[in-house]
Each structure stands twice: as C-alpha cells, then as structure tokens.
Design a protein around this nucleic acid. Structure first.
Lengths: 189, 189
DNA sequence: TGCATTTACCTAAATCCTTTAGGCAACCTG
DNA sequence: CAGGTTGCCTAAAGGATTTAGGTAAATGCA
C-alpha cells in the first residue's frame, strides 16, 4: 500500500482545479478519487461527504477572491479603486470559472458569516469611501455594485453576451464609467 | 395497468413545479417518476434524458418570463416601463425560484437562439426606447440592465442581502431610480 | 529498538440515479 | 372487433454516494 498523502487541504485544492477544468457541478467525490488514483472511500476520511467537499471549495474561492480584492484595493481610491475591484471579479471568473461558480454556492448562515465573504463585503464598502454617500444610500450602493459585478460576470461567463458586437471589454469599461458617474451623482429620494 | 396520461408537456410542467419546491438541481428523472407514481423508465419515452428534461424546464421558464415582460411593458414607457420590467424579474424569481434557476441554465447556441430568450432580449431594448441612446451605447445599456437585474435577483434569492438593514424593497426601488437617472444621463466616452 | 497507537488507505456492500432493451396491455382507427 | 400505436412495464447495467470494518504504514514513546 503506497500512501498518496491525502489531506483535506489537498483534496479541496484539487477539487478547485477540477472545477475549473470540468465545471463545478461535475465535481464529484468519485472524480476526485480518480484524480488521485485512489479508491473513493478513502476520501471520506478527509471530507464528510460530497456537499462538504463543495462547501470547502466554495470557501476557498471566497478566500481567493477576497485576497485579490484586498491586493487590488491597496493604494487605490475613487474610480481607480472601483475599476480595480470590478476587474477582480471579472478576471477571477475568467481564470477560474469553476471556482467562481463555487463561490455562488448557497451557504448556510453560520458558514457564510464565518467565510471570507464578509471580508469581501467590507471591501465593497471601502470602495465607496471614495464617494460621498451616507447610510442608507451606502448600503443600497453596495448592493448595486454587487449586483452589477456578479450579474455581468455570470452572464458573460454563461455566454449571454457572446453573439453580439460590440465586444465585451468595451461594455465592461463603459459600465464601470457609468457606475462611477452614478455614484458621484447619486440620486437622493 | 392504469395509464396516468404522461406527455412531455405534463412532465415539463411538473418538473418546473418540482424545481420550485425542492430546487432546480434536485430535479431528477427519478423524483419526477415518483411524483407521478410511475416507474422511472416510463419517462424516457417522453424525455430523452435528464439533461433534456432540464433544458425543457429552462425553455418553459424563459417563455414565462418573456410573457410576463411583454404584459408588463404593454402601454408603458420611460421609467414606468423600466420599473415594470425590473419587477418582472424580481417577482418571477421570488414566485418561482426553481424556474428562475432553470432559466440560467447554459443552453447550446442553437437552442438559445430558438428560445424565448431572444424575445426577452428584444424587450430589454424596447425599454430603452424611452431613453436617448444610440448604438453602441444602447447595447452597453442592455447589458448593464441585464447584469443588474439578474445579479440583484440571484443575490437576493441566494440570501446575499438577508442579514442586513435596510430592507431589500427599498434597495430595489432605489436601484431602479438610480438606473433611470443613469440612463437619462448616460456618460459619453 | 520494540511496541502501541494513530493514520491512510483498502475491500465490500447498500442505496440511489441514469439509461437502454424488450415486452405486454390498453387505447384509437377503421 | 382486428390492427397498429402508444403508454407503461420489468429487467439489467453502469456510476455516484456513503458506511462499516480491516490492514498496512507512519508515528510516538518506552
């Protein structure tokens, strides 16, 4: 019996790679076992079940996304920060479509509260420091930004914009411009 | 042997209901057979396979969404039309979460081109008739609207906004206001 | 160094979902 | 009512998930 050296950590990382290659919903305990050339049952010492594996991949993705956002925001403010933050979403989803899909997994409240999603939410607020918004408008704006970025990225990676001109890079730039204009000139009720 | 009266149509509708009750990814041929109290194999005369079933549910959802949008837009223009169109998304997703998830299923290009998604896209353009936008800005705006509505709705139904005040209805109204302001005052490059 | 414990991986088996093949009984048509 | 057609069946194979229980390797400790 040769030991491969399985750990939860390694399984989750390999699971994330698998997700990027074949899609998040194609990630199964069996596929992962095949990748390590190991029997399926062996994984169940490291991972509770299939759902647990997927949740861990989601948490990894949220971590990575938050890390990238933190890096992108360091030393930037205003529109610069907005654009950099937006690009983090888009680039991550393009480089790691499976992980990005994983990050959308619905987590139960406690898990979500303990995840890097919270950190990410704080950074969205940080982006808005460059604009003159007070509560509750700031919260509305946070939700708008989340909606636009997530919505755009998931439509684009889902092929929603693929058929038509003009190209998506141009649209992306213009959307960021538009959001900047909107935030500088937020309509009051 | 009592015949239940299965047809593709009935299966798809029941599948859509099932999706709303237990989630789109819990829709399986087995679960559907159970619901009709019929053996699994019997469904395969009406539906090619599991993927086919899901695709048909997605197409149904797209039809329904487009129908609602058409009704909502009739006799409305400008901000009125924008708000009504936005509400179609949100209401549909709330009333039929499983179907809404189905509508996000990635379709192959030909299927997508033949779907009601095309009709829906045309209606998004119709909403913009109330604003003074020419190509390519109109396309950018179409993509922005799609992103915001889809993004917001999927974050909200995914529980993304659930923890915090202010309430989501207020945010939704303010986002529609903000989009209206933005479209009336679209920044030119 | 030798033994005990823990850890990593195994076999085996139950359950469930998907899909195909082939068959019979119920319905529709003429 | 004889004919074909259709709706549902049984049977069976392949795969994924999960648990229980076992053995060999690594590790801790005397």
């Amino acid at each position: 019996m040769v030991r491969v050296g399985l750990t939860t950590e390694r399984l989750v990382r390999a699971g994330a790679e698998l997700a990027d290659e074949v899609g998040f919903d194609q990630v199964t305990v069996s596929a992962l076992a095949r990748r390590f050339d190991v029997k399926v049952a062996s994984l169940y010492s490291h991972v509770r079940n299939s759902q647990d594996l997927k949740t861990r991949i989601a948490l990894l993705a949220l971590e990575e996304l938050a890390d990238r956002a933190a890096t992108a925001l360091a030393g930037r403010a205003g529109k610069d920060a907005l654009a950099a933050f937006a690009d983090v979403y888009r680039d991550y989803a393009r480089e790691h479509p499976g992980r990005y899909a994983a990050a959308q997994l619905r987590l139960d409240p406690e898990t979500a509260a303990a995840s890097a999603g919270v950190r990410h939410a704080r950074m969205t607020r940080a982006v808005l420091r460059g604009y003159d918004l007070t509560e509750p408008d700031q919260t509305h704006a946070v939700r708008l930004l989340g909606s636009v970025f997530h919505g755009y990225v998931s439509l684009e990676t889902g092929g929603g914009f693929s058929h038509s001109a003009p190209d998506t890079q141009e649209t992306w730039t213009r959307i960021v411009d538009a959001l900047d204009a909107l935030l500088r000139n937020w309509p009051t009720s």
